[in-house]
Every structure is written in structure tokens, then in C-alpha cells.
Amino acid sequence: MEIVVFYILAAVIVVFSVLTVTTQRILRSATYLLFVLFGTAGIYFQLNYSFLGAVQLTIYAGGIIVLYVFSILLTSPDGDKIATKLPKSKLFAGLVASLAGAVLCIFITLNHTFPVSRFVPGEIDMKTIGFALLGTEKYQYMLPFEAISVLLLACIIGGIMIARKRG
């Protein structure tokens, strides 16, 4: 069962990833990205990281994609259509480089002997997550948490500053 689910997820992710970057229309691209993100969320659920999956769904699928769609609609209804076409050579070079990279990476991954790996199921409960997030000891993440909150704040302000209309 799990295997089947995994293959489905994997197929979704791979197909839509490729489609995301190859489609000519930017809106479709965003939509395919959404599917990839859903697939990723699915993988998190499969790994028993339900919280992570939920976050993935809400923030990515819910927040970021909406942001994309809006900005796409705001900026260029025509999307990529009027985009200058790349010379064939560059396209080819990019393709070859990426494929070579992928092949190399996969090759290494498959050939590498990892330490004993086994799937240990079990959810992490919210309490653990909460404590880890707001604790200050070893393996607890108060400081990054705060740093990220500051970063977010800065981004909010920065985003407003940059995007607002100048009088």
C-alpha cells in the first residue's frame, strides 16, 4: 500500500516538476508547482511528519502559491509568451548540464552506502515540537525561531516598502 502511494506521489512530483519548468505559460507553471507541493506534502505525511505536511500545505500551497498567482496576474497576463526565446544552444547546454547533474547525483546516491537506515514510524507530538521550538537548551531552537521571526518582520516591512506606490 505504502509503496503504491509512494509511486503515485513520486510520479506526481517528477511529472509536475518537469512540467513546471517546461511549460510556456507562467500561470500553468504556478499550477503545476502547486501539484508538486501537494506531492511533497504527501511525502511528509508518509514520513509521519504530519505537522510538517500541514505546514507545507498551509504556507506553501495556501500562502505562497496564492501570492504567485496574484503577482502573475498583476504583472504579465501574457506570461512567457512574449518572452525572448533562448538560443537553441543555450537550451541544449542547460538541458545537458541538468541531466548530467541529475544522473551524477543519482548515481552517487545509489552507489553510496549510507549507515544502516530504517524507517522508524511514529508521530512527533505537538508538545515535543512546541518545547523544542521554544526551549533554550541543546537541540532546542529558541534562537533560530526568534531570528526567523525577526527576519519575517523585516521582510514584511521590506516588502511593503519596496512594493508600495511612490507618491
Binding site: A93, G94, A97, S98, G101, L104, I108
Partner: peptide
């Protein structure tokens, strides 16, 4: 980025 990738690949190939 392209140059970077090529470079990285070459290094990886070399190291591996």
C-alpha cells in the same frame, strides 16, 4: 549559476 553548476559537477566528478 550555469557556470557554478558546471564547476560543481566537475569538482564532484574529480573527487568521486
Amino acid at each position: 549559476a550555469f557556470v557554478f553548476l558546471i564547476g560543481t559537477l566537475l569538482i564532484v566528478v574529480w573527487m568521486v
